[in-house]
Amino acid sequence: MADNFIHSAERMRDSSNILHLNKDFHNSCYMAGYVVECYLKIFMNFSLPIPSSNPRSYGHNINQLSADLYYAATSAASASAYRSYIIDVHTECNNIINTWNPIKRYEDNPNAWDETMSINFHQEKEKCFDILTKMTIDNVI
């Protein structure tokens, strides 16, 4: 069965929102990072010259995935149809890109991702999710 990144992004977004509302900020941040990961991996389903066409080969390395995607999107002619949907997550989602790592779910410090970070993560994941919604409306995905 193929990975379904749009449905995964929807589930992770919903979970992140519920966790944030219930003041479980650490796990809210954890789920929010997956929304950005799914957003990036969706582009691997298109004909872009990304070094690896297998999303699983990136694991949870959203830094490498975003760098490869951004390079492909800005340099390849085949990416022109998708450029308007690709944001620079290093700028638009810098908290997630710089501090999200799924291994943090095992940390003893549940305040590693606190309320302020959860608010930032929430805003950043929504940027990606808004684009996924637009891509759905535009019938791209």
Rank of each mutant, 00 (worst) to 15 (best):
G33C: 02
G33L: 03
Y34S: 04
Y34E: 05
Y34M: 07
V35P: 06
E37I: 04
E37K: 03
C38S: 13
Y39A: 12
Y39G: 11
L40I: 14
L40R: 01
K41V: 07
K41I: 10
I42R: 03
I42N: 05
F43A: 05
N45Y: 11
N45L: 10
F46N: 02
F46Y: 15
F46E: 05
F46H: 07
S47E: 15
S47A: 15
P49A: 14
I50V: 14
I50R: 01
I50G: 01
I50C: 07
I50D: 04
P51Y: 01
P51G: 06
P51K: 10
S52Q: 11
S52E: 09
S52G: 07
S53G: 14
N54S: 15
P55G: 06
P55H: 08
R56M: 09
S57V: 13
Y58I: 10
G59N: 09
G59T: 12
G59A: 12
G59D: 09
G59C: 09
G59F: 09
G59E: 12
H60E: 12
I62M: 08
N63C: 10
N63L: 13
N63H: 11
Q64C: 06
Q64I: 12
L65F: 02
L65P: 05
L65Q: 00
S66E: 11
D68K: 01
D68V: 08
D68A: 02
L69H: 06
L69Y: 03
Y70D: 06
Y70M: 11
Y71V: 13
Y71W: 12
A72P: 05
A72D: 05
A72K: 03
A73Y: 01
S75R: 11
S75V: 11
S75T: 15
A76G: 04
A76V: 01
A76Q: 01
A76Y: 04
A77F: 00
A77W: 00
A77D: 09
S78L: 12
A79Q: 04
A79Y: 07
S80H: 03
S80G: 00
A81C: 08
A81G: 13
Y82S: 10
Y82W: 08
Y82K: 05
R83H: 01
S84F: 01
S84W: 00
S84I: 08
Y85F: 10
Y85W: 03
Y85P: 00
Y85Q: 02
